[in-house]
Design a protein around this nucleic acid. Structure first.
Lengths: 205, 205
DNA sequence: CCTACCGATCGGTAGG
DNA sequence: CCTACCGATCGGTAGG
């Protein structure tokens, strides 16, 4: 009844919409998702949806921004002072954990890439590029110090990203090939272990 | 006028539709593509489209099948008698070449995966799974012979697929990070070289 | 005069 | 291969 209570309800409903929209956009893409479905999954009428987001594009952009905070931000730069093997292992394990815990975030990101990244392009040229360059600088330092063999650091990060995200984005294929109805933590741990082994061994001087 | 001429026109128009549809499905997905757009890009009226394909789902399925023939079939099994290093290099180079030459096929495949592979699932459980098991058998033989270090062969193939397809499916991100307007053959060759180096080195006993 | 929300329906466009 | 047109459903908004 009070202003505070209404604000609380508003915040709660907005969160429900974002969660529902993330699920639907991840599974069906932007065009395959209807406002009616988002509203339904958020336990509200479709007209009421428009009290929270004016258009479908608005909620998509909001979901995309949410996605970035769970998908890109947790990936700290490598610590140049630390042991390369341990650092790379930490990074790969972290990425596989993200693919396991937040496959929907990964798929929304993948969908946006397949569309040509119309919304995320500025972010890619800015924040993401900076992250890659920080990563590359550490790798190159390790190379100069003779701790790892010389390698193109940018392609190395593409390799780690491509391989780890594969377990979220291509899940149906992985399930079919492994012959399991769903992947459990053990499967992801085995994936991380296999990736770590090849990458870390492959980088040994 | 003759039956043969009509057949020729029909075949040519069908090919034009498939090419146009592949482009549009790759860029916008199934729901983001309209029959009107496909017809327009095929230089024909929208009603005429329906002389060649009854529904949008029909042409999508046809495109998907075309995609498989350029995307999966060229990947021969590894030759167990040959040198592991040379064989793996050949396989990786071949996959990167596919990503470079047929990025649209890769994106259509990726889109289908993101949707949960509703159409391709039987194919994944059959043909694709068989290919992976043939691949895995060769890898395991090499391991037993001490030619490469023991590794989970299925995760190795996911690694190669994930990494190489990344260059087609996440092209906007790769362009942004590299700071180039488009990727030329040299970029793809560098990618292949980096992947080969890490994988082949990572598998050395 | 504000909010949160409903049932009903708007103008346009989709696949067929 | 065209014009004309359908049942339905889309995103977004009206009044109460």
């Amino acid at each position: 009844m009070t202003e505070k209570k209404m604000t609380r309800i508003k915040a709660r409903n907005e969160a429900k919409i974002l969660e529902a929209a993330q699920k639907l956009f991840a599974a069906h893409g932007f065009h395959g998702t209807t406002i009616e479905k988002i509203a339904e999954l958020s336990d509200m009428s479709q007209p009421n949806f428009h009290n929270y987001f004016k258009t479908k594009a608005d909620v998509y952009e909001a979901v995309l921004n949410n996605t970035l905070t769970v998908w890109i931000d947790p990936l700290d730069a490598l610590d140049v002072e630390a042991d390369p093997e341990a650092e790379l292992r930490r990074y790969i394990v972290q990425k596989i954990e993200l693919a396991r815990k937040y496959p929907e975030a990964s798929r929304i990101f993948a969908n946006e890439m397949l569309q040509g990244a119309p919304i995320l392009m500025p972010h890619l040229k800015g924040h993401v590029r900076d992250k890659v360059q920080a990563f590359a600088a550490v790798i190159e330092t390790w190379s100069r110090q003779g701790k790892i063999r010389p390698i193109d650091p940018v392609h190395l990060i593409f390799m780690i990203w491509g391989t780890t995200q594969h377990y979220a984005d291509f899940l149906p294929q992985i399930r079919a090939v492994l012959g399991v109805p769903r992947l459990n933590k053990t499967h992801f741990d085995q994936a991380a272990e296999s990736i770590c082994e090849i990458v870390i061994n492959g980088l040994k001087p």
